[in-house]
Nucleic acid binder design. Structure first.
Lengths: 323, 323
DNA sequence: TTGTACGCGTTATCAG
DNA sequence: CTGATAACGCGTACAA
């Protein structure tokens, strides 16, 4: 490892002069600077992160925590984060592994963006108490110290449900996510509230866990009842796709016997036949806004929590195939 | 920040005793240890990464570098990496941002797994010279110091092409990826070699860049020629799907007028109609093997390069819809 | 068994 | 303009 000390030796100056030169301090003659720079370059010098961090007490790194229900990874969300952070001199790392939760209190990262239901809320609150910078995307916390960037589940759920009910189904099902996830719980709560507004609507809640398999299981249950003109609100697309998989083996027709709507506007929802109705929102924007918030926190600006709006995507899975 | 020093004060011992206690050294009485542990816990002590790293000269962090052609992010590859690393006390971070390339020489990470065509080969070679641990997944290097875990493009390409040619197309097209990517170049080279083995086969290479848009452009070019029974080998699924998008607006029938095969067995390829023929391989395994190699390098074991095998996925996009 | 003291690589203060 | 020197937080050889 070639360090600042080696350069100093080579150049015949002291280490502090080298440091000044490297950090473009005006306290060093232009001539010595360029000479030192040249030597540093020749020696392939690259500053050591640990040393620098120890002194500066910040890393310019932001950590992102994700869970990965079933495989669709949040590509454009991450793009939104990186691009935004990049404009402000920060880099992004996606953290994963047993000890990764410690990166924040260990000061490996200057802030965290959390979209990971397996990250315990108690832990987040503990870190928030320590004045660590956190933006959460998947839960609501009491603490004023963490910033929230949440999906507008309220609008999305209402839109989806109203669209579904407009087809006058004889019965409506809701397939939920894991019961500890915020998005699932909030969507379920709003959907129930909406459904109970009309007394004459019969509905049933089926437990799922946001995976394709749980969607298949739900479809099986529904199919076995042998009802006609049923409506299903899957609280994410993944489960809706699982339903498709199961129903392909039956003679129930999607969009007619059974109407399905999802949530997320996943890639597959656009190509599956019949086209899946769903709820859309911009992953990119979600990431970008989260990044803006973390940057605000880092500057000490109090960051206002924000919502990412959602829109309805109509589809043949609800209205049937029109020719 | 509460540090080892604060604990020493609180417990009325010296910092080294605290350090010993924390690191389970046998050099400290069990009684003092537990007392110190308790105090550390009460004070919410968490060791500072920079300090520790500076001393230990390793972070137990492995960095993964990815590019993201078009949005499909490598979820299960990352899962393969994390799971494998986790069993050996390492954590994974996915690195992204302008300065992230420096993490390796800066010693923020103990090793790097690279699947990112935008990461310059020259840079990788420079780092390899410095004895930094690197596993590459997307190129072939001279250096004996870096380990390769590559797809078996040879088998995949041959399989795909033979399947396509078995339909006796009148003309065959190959749609390439960006010309600086290894996977594209090697697939193209092998395909060409295979095609030229039979003199009577007419074929043409169309330039693409692994994105959906480039697939659409290629489809347009092909459609305009108005040929019948054409075969197209898209060097990845993404472009094949772009072709579907374009062809949906024409009256050409996929699997009959135009036969298409892709590469990657993406999620969408399984759901699109008609089902896309493609080449499969295990992303999870790819990640897991890459992780094993990096671990081997870290232990000083010379890691043998390895290939990830590929298999053919037949589909209606080549054979047509059978009822 | 515990304490002292040094070093890891940087940055930054303070004299010269 | 430059050099010595003290942090930063932790680990550990050596001394007590």
């Amino acid at each position: 490892m070639v360090g600042i000390k080696d350069i100093a030796n080579q150049a015949g100056v002291s280490i502090s002069t080298v440091s000044y030169a490297l950090n473009n301090s005006p306290k060093v003659k232009e001539e010595t600077r360029s000479r030192i720079m040249k030597i540093a370059d020749e020696m392939n010098y690259i500053p050591n992160m640990a040393g620098r961090t120890l002194k500066r007490q910040q890393t310019n790194l932001i950590g992102v925590y994700l869970t990965n229900y079933g495989g669709s990874f949040y590509g454009s969300l991450l793009e939104g984060v990186t691009k935004t952070l990049g404009r402000h001199g920060y880099d992004m790392i996606v953290c994963s592994g047993t000890k990764s939760h410690l990166f924040l209190p260990e000061k490996l990262i200057d802030g965290a963006i959390i979209l990971d239901a397996t990250f315990p809320t108690a832990e987040i609150e503990k870190y928030a108490e320590r004045e660590l910078n956190i933006v959460v995307l998947d839960r609501e916390l009491e603490s004023e110290k963490v910033c929230h960037v949440l999906l507008d589940n309220q609008a999305g759920t209402t839109l989806a449900l109203d669209y579904l009910l407009a087809q006058s189904p004889t019965k409506t099902y809701i397939v939920t996510g894991p019961d500890h996830t915020y998005d699932s719980n909030i969507r379920l709560a709003i959907a129930k509230q909406e459904l109970e507004r009309f007394e004459h609507i019969e509905y049933e809640v089926l437990e799922g866990n946001f995976t394709k398999e749980s969607g298949m299981r739900a479809a099986k249950k529904i199919a076995e009842k042998n009802e006609k003109n049923v409506a299903v609100f899957c609280l994410n697309d993944e489960m809706a796709i699982g339903m498709y998989d199961y129903l392909a083996k039956t003679d129930l027709e999607i969009g007619k016997d059974i109407r399905i709507i999802g949530f997320d506007h996943s890639e597959v929802s656009r190509y599956i036949q019949p086209r899946l109705a769903t709820v859309d929102y911009s992953m990119y924007k979600w990431g970008a806004v989260a990044a803006e918030k973390i940057l605000a926190l880092l500057e000490g600006t109090p960051a206002k929590s924000e919502r990412i709006y959602t829109t309805l995507i109509r589809g043949e899975s609800v209205e049937g195939v029109q020719d």
